[in-house]
């Protein structure tokens, strides 16, 4: 697994892929989808797909892939090694959502929530497999949300493919376990080797698990809180843990779209400016004098005092 395409700019989202096994272009295939790092406040979220011919399901099972969460890091690395050795019939692809992508998407003017982000990412990966010529017949998806609606959505999007969405799919279907191992191995490696773009000197890498309730993670978040900038891009600013800490220990920052959607804010802005500019020049008593629109369009006004 070569992470360098992501590591050249770890603020962006990035796709990593294995070679497509030839047999996957000719034989009916099954595909599993799983994610790693949805909960942590640190590091990327990685979406993984793994696929192989339906006829090779048994072989995949025999390789003892299991839900990545029940495995140690060493076991996962070991299993990923095995998957790599099976590259003549097993393929995979990963979508790495950088923490910066997660923050800026979720905090966007037109909010883009994590569920929508997850679904779109999963769909994008399935589409990638199809576009690469993988003969998909079955898709297995692990989900945290309501399974039925998601299953219906995917079935509609990919007619002719048998879609199964299940909670805990990663322990039920070996091909999902395999996807989960790929995703988890990538996330672990990325977090371990995170190169901070910020100029922070030597950074303490004892982050713990990255989950908000891990004392080590909490301690790290306290240590690396900058009152003005908050955190390096390694941290997900949209997580309430990070936001609460910034609110209580950082400087308050106001945005024009705080607490309202973009449309509303633009309106308010304009109304406000209209009032402000008609009474410009420290001249509230004489609203008759209007500032010429050359100035109001340029947000220029006279001052009464420095």
């Amino acid at each position: 697994m070569d992470l360098s395409p992501f590591e050249t700019d770890n603020s962006l989202s990035c796709r990593l892929t294995s070679e497509i096994p030839d047999v996957c272009r000719t034989e009916d295939c099954c595909l599993g989808i799983d994610e790693a790092g949805r909960g942590p406040v640190l590091g990327p979220m990685v979406y993984g797909i793994c696929f192989c011919p339906v006829s090779k399901k048994q072989e995949l099972k025999e390789s003892k892939v299991a839900d990545s969460k029940t495995l140690t890091e060493a076991e996962r690395e070991n299993l990923f090694q095995k998957l790599d050795e099976a590259r003549s019939y097993v393929g995979w692809a990963l979508q790495i959502l950088s923490p910066n992508t997660i923050s800026t998407s979720m905090l966007q003017r037109t909010k883009y929530n994590l569920n929508a982000l997850s679904h779109d990412t999963a769909i994008g990966l399935v589409q990638y497999a199809l576009d690469s010529g993988v003969q998909l017949k079955e898709v297995f998806v692990d989900t945290v949300g309501p399974a039925e609606k998601y299953e219906e959505k995917l079935s509609k999007l990919f007619p002719g493919i048998d879609v199964t969405v299940r909670p805990k799919a990663d322990s039920l279907f070996p091909v999902v376990s395999a996807a989960s191992i790929c995703a988890k191995v990538a996330r672990d490696r990325i977090v371990k080797g995170w190169a901070f773009t910020e100029d922070l000197g030597e950074v303490d890498t004892d982050y713990g698990s990255g989950y908000p309730n891990d004392p080590k993670t909490k301690a790290w978040l306290l240590k690396y809180l900058d009152p003005v900038f908050g955190y390096p891009q390694f941290v997900r600013f949209s997580w309430s843990t990070a936001r609460t800490l910034m609110d209580s220990k950082g400087v308050t920052v106001h945005w024009e779209d705080d607490d309202e959607d973009g449309e509303k804010s633009a309106q308010r802005q304009n109304n406000k400016s209209m009032l402000a500019y008609f009474s410009a020049g420290g001249n509230e008593q004489k609203p008759a004098q209007q500032t010429h629109r050359f100035f109001s369009e340029r947000r220029l006004k006279s001052l009464a005092a420095l």
């Binding site: 910066n100 905090l107 966007q108 773009t197 900038f229 997900r236 600013f237 910034m246």
Partner: peptide
């Protein structure tokens, strides 16, 4: 404020614009 450490260090120059994020906003 640690402007150079955070803002300057993470600013990217593209052809037509610069990009950066501040407090998780693009």
């Amino acid at each position: 404020a640690h402007v150079s450490e955070y803002l300057t260090a993470t600013t990217k120059d593209c052809k037509l614009e610069k990009t950066v994020s501040f407090r998780g906003r693009g």
